[in-house]
């Protein structure tokens, strides 16, 4: 069987090859393979936004449909999967905007949760954490999950892409269409905000 040349393929979320050329030709079997490989990660990404299984399913299906219809617009400036995640996140954001069911922190809250400095030194004294003191692992998980949920979309997305899905800074930048520097700044600010939110539980 003829193998596709390396530059015409990319590695999917499950580590297997995606035949990008065949997908772009509109080959249904290749696109089906893309759906099989990328559904789990795409579903998780979308669910982080819409927070409802049923809605995440609908948004994911619509994402694949839109992607298939828009294959001719893929410019090869990023990986095909990166382009797919961008469509998914945009679809999820649109779905959330329609409903507006959840309140999250505002930009000024994120600023307030950053450490303060005076003459280059921390203003506050920090006490060592011991998350194990929250004995139940499920309780720890709940506290962390709720803290992530409180982040505004712009910060939560970066945390999800980088820390949870393990995308590189460059890939996250391509998905969000922002600079790598902006990804780094948002990730750092998001982690510092999460640290501050969790501090009271784990000291």
């Amino acid at each position: 069987m003829k193998q596709p040349s390396p530059e015409k393929t990319e590695t999917g979320a499950d580590g297997r090859e995606i035949d990008v050329e065949a997908v772009l030709r509109g080959d249904h079997a290749a696109f089906e393979q893309l759906v099989r490989q990328e559904s789990p990660r795409l579903f998780r990404l979308i669910l982080r936004f819409v927070r409802d299984d049923e809605e995440a399913r609908n948004v994911m299906q619509e994402t694949f449909l839109q992607a298939f219809k828009r294959l001719h617009t893929f410019r090869r400036e990023s990986k095909l999967t990166t382009w797919l995640y961008a469509i998914g996140i945009n679809q999820a954001r649109a779905a959330v905007r329609k409903k507006r069911r959840y309140t999250t922190l505002e930009e000024q809250d994120i600023e307030r949760l950053q450490p303060a400095f005076a003459q280059g030194m921390y203003v506050d004294r920090y006490e060592a954490w011991n998350p194990q003191q929250v004995a139940e692992r499920s309780e720890r998980s709940r506290l962390v999950h709720e803290a992530i949920e409180q982040l505004p979309d712009t910060y939560r997305t970066v945390v999800v892409l980088r820390d949870l899905e393990g995308l590189s800074t460059a890939e996250a930048a391509a998905v969000l269409e922002i600079s790598e520097g902006a990804v780094r700044v948002r990730l750092h600010r998001a982690r510092q905000a999460l640290r501050a939110l969790l501090d009271k539980y784990f000291r």
């Binding site: 998780r44 399913r57 998980s141 962390v144 820390d163």
Partner: peptide, 14 residues
């Protein structure tokens, strides 16, 4: 520890 705790916040596959 924040980064490690966040990484444990997995959600189920579909």
């Amino acid at each position: 520890q924040t980064v490690e705790l966040v990484r444990e916040d997995e959600i189920a596959d579909p």
